[in-house]
């Protein structure tokens, strides 16, 4: 237990340092941009006084360092200023759009973990035979195809040619509403007992989730397969086989189970790669998540929103990394906590 506490203290201290660094990088890059953020925000038709008012409000006339201090002061209190795009406070926008992104990414992660493992196990079981070859060829293409390209192709195939799934639109079909409690539509519809809404939400999520999951899924199939195949030649497996231990038991307990650990240890990386791929996938399916919000903010030079989203994503990834480290240290007794990380 003590090493966990020690690990936490060390890790959180390091994380705070990284976040401060990230905030400095993103803030200073956003402020050296030519052009007046206040003018960009208000448009060319705004009066000079209005622009000046906003400049004062955003502290744009102060020295850069002081601007950063003001900005950080707000940021630690959760105040990232107003979004120039939605005219609301950025944190309100994040609260609205983040659950949608998380919902999508959790479903994608579920698909990628379950099917990735199944494909990997099948591949390993039929090592060298045709199912293995077929899966391998699909893997090469699946890993090479960027998720946004898959999204566009899915849009064409399942949105237009075989229109069986809704490809464009929000989280629910028009006309279906659930009371907002948590912001997660799936959870909210469960709470209110509205199973129609739950299935409708699922149908809306499935295409973007598959587009996000495919690359990681095939990557995982490859990792699971290679771990299982590598281990199957080891002495302890041969010994068990020679002693007549049932194949099913060997496969389950001694080949499959250890192959789960490398999968989990790259999960934080998978999670962040899905978040960044969601930037385009959400845009293509016009799914109202944080990633699409971020892209729109970027395209409209909404600096407050861009800085806030980058910083918040940084925090989310740090939490994900710590969580994965802990899970791996629990699953694999050989890895002690604290040896990883920095």
């Amino acid at each position: 237990m003590r090493e966990y506490v020690k690990y936490f203290v060390k890790r959180i201290g390091f994380s705070i340092f990284v976040l401060i660094g990230l905030s400095i990088v993103i803030f200073f890059i956003s402020r050296v941009v030519p052009g007046d953020p206040a003018r960009i925000s208000l448009g060319p038709n705004a009066t000079e006084e209005a622009v000046q008012q906003l400049r004062t409000k955003m502290h744009l006339d102060d020295p850069l360092l002081l601007q950063y201090v003001y900005w950080m002061e707000g940021a630690v209190q959760g105040d990232f200023g107003d979004s120039l795009m939605t005219k609301r406070s950025v944190i309100e926008d994040v609260r609205e759009f983040l659950p949608a992104s998380l919902e999508l990414i959790f479903l994608a992660a579920l698909i990628h973990i379950i099917f990735g493992m199944v494909l990997g196990v099948v591949s390993a079981k039929y090592n060298g035979k045709w199912p293995d070859t077929v899966i391998r060829i699909f893997s090469y293409v699946g890993i090479a195809a960027p998720p946004f390209v898959m999204a566009v192709l899915f849009l064409l195939i399942f949105g237009y040619w075989i229109p069986i799934l809704p490809s464009i639109g929000g989280r629910l079909s028009p006309g279906i509403t659930v009371p907002t409690v948590t912001g997660f539509v799936s959870v909210d519809s469960l709470i209110s007992g509205n199973f129609h809404a739950l299935s409708d939400n699922f149908v809306h999520l499935i295409l973007p989730a598959i587009a996000l999951a495919l690359g990681n899924m095939f990557q995982e199939a490859r990792i699971t397969r290679s771990t299982m195949v590598d281990n199957s030649g080891k002495d302890y497996i041969l010994m068990m086989r020679s002693q007549g231990v049932k194949n099913g038991l060997i496969n389950r307990k001694y080949l499959f189970k250890p192959s789960v650990i490398p999968t989990i240890s790259i999960m934080a990386l998978d999670f962040s790669s899905m978040f960044c791929n969601a930037f385009l996938v959400e845009t293509i399916f016009t799914y109202p998540g944080l990633s699409r919000y971020a892209i729109n903010a970027m395209l409209r030079n909404d600096l407050n929103a861009v800085c806030a989203v980058v910083l918040i994503l940084g925090i989310i990834f740090i939490i994900a990394n710590i969580a994965v480290d802990i899970i791996v240290s629990i699953l694999d007794p050989r890895i002690s906590i604290g040896s990883g990380g920095n």
């Binding site: 390091f14 990284v18 976040l19 660094g21 990230l22 400095i24 990088v25 962040s272 790669s273 978040f275 960044c276 980058v310 994503l313 940084g314 990834f317 740090i318 920095n342």
Partner: peptide, 8 residues
């Protein structure tokens, strides 16, 4: 380097 690697 750590700072730059904290986001993808």
């Amino acid at each position: 380097t750590d700072v730059f690697l904290s986001v993808p």
